[in-house]
Design a protein around this nucleic acid. Structure first.
Lengths: 211, 211
DNA sequence: GTGAATCCTATACATTGGTATAGAGGTGCT
DNA sequence: AGCACCTCTATACCAATGTATAGGATTCAC
């Protein structure tokens, strides 16, 4: 069984021109990539489910919403798939808008096959990185949600650098109580050291709590 | 004395067309911005010295190096001034390259005055943020350079979450020695808590030291 | 050699942090 | 009422950390 270098990633193609879809599809498949093609943004949204590394090749001109608007829609829907735009009749303002909104690449037809392949590699790598990052933060958030409200105050003050006695004063409780909460926080968060906990708090964006 | 809203910032303009320089210069001055204009990239480089918030409005087509190449040159020289490109005859690949390299905006002539003014505000704000960030890291680095090599090993291991006894074992010294070094580190770095120190180490990119 | 800096160590003491055990009081749900 | 959970507290004890004082060894520059 031959190893699939990109078996665990998918390239989505959304273009209203069937011949373009076909051409791009076969190009990408020829280098071992898994591809799924759609004629409209709506179709793509309907089928978009697999939770694997992916990127999107998107035509600027689409029936219904434009590619640029669709880019905004995806962002608003919290779908952060990296996008490569292709266009036959683009202009500079479109390009600027797309790139500002985080597009990986903006190619004008006709483009060289290699340029598209390069862009796809970059896009997939970007998605891979983002997914790894997301996963970490998601797990942290999951742990954080297991904390009681008091424990959340404590983690906030601990990672702000306060001593137990200061936290106790801040919260109006005894120091021993703080120690107990602090112990629970370490355990629930899975932190093996204070340094660990500080980094978790930063990754979660935890700010210094008010009393 | 009227307050100058942008008194502490400068907009540089590099364009080989004197009339364009003049037009942009007076537009920016009309809203209270301080402006300095140049006809070539070399002239700009010669005069570029003041250490204040700034941005650069750059024509793509310049005598000698192109605006795009100049953008790369500046980056290579570690000059991170935000750039706004303007062009009369730009194309999409140029736009993509400029935006990928971090340009704030890419405007085609003729553009609306307001578009340029908006871009300038964004560029200046970006520079302001970067400068603040740079200053912080620079001060940290300054403190870090005051550490002895042993202290650098200790800060690395402390912020990796190791206990003093573990650090002692790692370095092959006694625990009391680690405590002394650790105390020096806190003092020299100006850290008021371990949480503080951990964040400093992260900002400095300090990794776990090898023995 | 002298002085300065670094590195290491030790003693002694004080503070801070961590955990186990045990119990009181409150809330909310069934 | 009974149960689960949260919050708070206390005692007791142990581990970890911080600091002051003091000294030995090494290295490097002058």
């Amino acid at each position: 069984m031959k190893e699939q270098p990109e078996a665990r990633s998918i390239v989505f193609v959304v273009d209203d021109d069937a011949s373009v879809r076909e051409a791009i599809g076969s190009l990408l498949r020829s280098v071992g990539l898994q591809v799924e093609v759609f004629g409209t943004a709506a179709e793509f949204l309907k089928n978009k489910s697999p939770d694997v590394t992916a990127c999107l090749i998107l035509d600027i001109r689409l029936p219904g919403v434009s590619g640029l608007d669709f880019q905004v829609e995806l962002a608003a829907a919290n779908i952060h798939i990296p996008i490569i735009f292709i266009t036959g009749h683009g202009d500079i303002p479109m390009t600027v808008r797309a790139m500002k909104a985080g597009a990986v690449e903006f190619l004008t037809k006709p483009f060289r096959d290699q340029d598209l392949l390069d862009a796809v590699q970059i896009a997939l790598e970007r998605d891979r990185t983002r997914r790894a990052q997301d996963k970490t933060v998601h797990e942290l958030r999951h742990h954080y949600e297991a904390l009681t409200s008091r424990e959340r105050q404590v983690i906030s003050l601990v990672t702000a650098g306060l001593m137990n006695k200061q936290i106790a004063a801040e919260l109006g409780v005894s120091e021993i109580t703080v120690k107990v909460h602090r112990g629970s926080v370490m355990k629930k968060m899975g932190a093996r050291s204070l340094a660990d906990l500080v980094r978790m708090a930063d990754a979660l964006g935890i700010k210094r709590a008010r009393r």
